[in-house]
């Protein structure tokens, strides 16, 4: 098995893992009960799933500028997904769509 084959196989493994995580994220969006728990599914497995797919594609393409483009997609994904989920969560929170604060752990220096 040559190096190219090994990289191809590794790329396929990454693609598969990434696709599975995206599937889990989609299932989470369907199964979780409310807006904020759904944001968990929409941010974490989704981001890592996409990053793994990008790594998989990068391992199979290996042209410098293509890898740069994939890197760019990854960076913007990491930057925009938390901001997007934050906006959705805040909109729901401020319009009273979700329960108000259940736990106020208090101030930093609160001994309780």
């Amino acid at each position: 098995m040559t190096l190219t084959d090994a990289l191809d196989v590794l790329g396929l493994v990454f693609l598969l893992l990434g696709a599975l995580l995206c599937l889990a994220a989609a299932i989470g969006l369907l199964r979780f009960p409310d807006l904020l728990t759904r944001m968990h599914a929409g941010t974490k497995p989704q981001v890592l799933g996409l990053l793994l797919v990008l790594v998989g594609v990068g391992l199979r393409s290996r042209s410098g500028l293509d890898v740069g483009m994939l890197l760019l997609i990854g960076v913007f994904q990491l930057l925009t997904i938390p901001a997007g989920s934050h906006m959705v969560g805040r909109a729901g929170f401020r319009t009273g769509q979700v329960a108000p604060t259940d736990i106020h752990p208090g101030r930093r220096d609160d001994p309780a």
């Binding site: 599975l20 995580l21 889990a24 994220a25 299932i27 989470g28 199964r31 979780f32 009960p33 409310d34 904020l36 728990t37 968990h40 599914a41 974490k44 497995p45 981001v47 890592l48 799933g49 929170f93 979700v98 329960a99 108000p100 604060t101 259940d102 736990i103 106020h104 752990p105 101030r107 930093r108």
Partner: peptide, 29 residues
Amino acid sequence: LVRASVEVAWLAVRPGPVSRGVVMDLELA
């Protein structure tokens, strides 16, 4: 990031009742 993704993915697909959470706040330094 990897741990969070695997954890949430497992919470999403595991059989049984789905988990909920709470809203909380804290002060940054």
